[in-house]
Simulated assay, not measured.
Amino acid sequence: MLVLRPIRGDDFAALKQIAIESGHGFTSLPVDDELLQAKIERSERSVDKHVNGPGDEGYLFVLQDTESGDIVGTTGIEAAVGMSVPLYHYRRSTSVHHSPSLDVYNRVDTLSMCNDYTGCSEICTLFLREPYRRGLTGRFLSRIRFLFMAEHSDRFSDTIIAEMRGVSDEHGHSPFWQWLQQHFFSIEFPQADHLVGLGDKTFISELMPKYPIYVNLLSEAAQAVIGQVHDNTKPALRLLQREGFEHRGYVDLFDAGPTVEAKLGNISTVRQSKVCPILIKEQLEPQATTWALCNDKVADFRAIFSDAVEYCDIKHQLYISAEAADTLGVSQGDSVRFFALSSR
Rank of each mutant, 00 (worst) to 15 (best):
1 M>R: 06
2 L>M: 13
12 F>D: 04
14 A>P: 13
17 Q>W: 13
30 P>V: 02
32 D>E: 06
36 L>M: 06
36 L>E: 07
44 E>Y: 01
50 H>Q: 14
52 N>P: 11
53 G>T: 03
55 G>S: 15
65 D>F: 05
74 T>V: 08
76 G>W: 12
82 G>V: 06
86 P>I: 08
88 Y>Q: 05
91 R>V: 14
94 T>N: 09
94 T>I: 15
95 S>F: 13
95 S>M: 13
97 H>T: 08
98 H>K: 07
114 C>W: 08
127 F>Y: 15
135 G>Y: 12
144 I>K: 05
145 R>H: 12
147 L>N: 00
150 A>H: 09
151 E>P: 03
151 E>D: 15
157 S>Q: 10
164 M>H: 12
164 M>D: 07
167 V>N: 01
169 D>M: 04
169 D>R: 03
169 D>Q: 04
170 E>Q: 12
171 H>S: 11
172 G>E: 13
180 L>D: 06
180 L>W: 03
185 F>P: 10
192 A>I: 00
194 H>S: 06
200 D>S: 04
204 I>E: 02
205 S>H: 02
207 L>P: 01
212 P>V: 03
215 V>S: 12
220 E>D: 15
220 E>A: 14
224 A>C: 08
224 A>G: 05
225 V>L: 04
226 I>H: 00
227 G>C: 05
241 Q>N: 11
250 Y>I: 08
254 F>P: 10
269 T>S: 10
276 C>S: 12
277 P>H: 01
279 L>D: 14
280 I>S: 05
281 K>F: 11
282 E>M: 00
283 Q>P: 02
284 L>E: 07
286 P>C: 03
287 Q>I: 01
288 A>D: 07
289 T>W: 12
293 L>E: 04
295 N>G: 12
309 V>N: 10
310 E>M: 03
319 Y>H: 02
328 L>E: 03
330 V>T: 04
330 V>A: 05
342 S>R: 15
343 S>P: 04
343 S>Y: 09
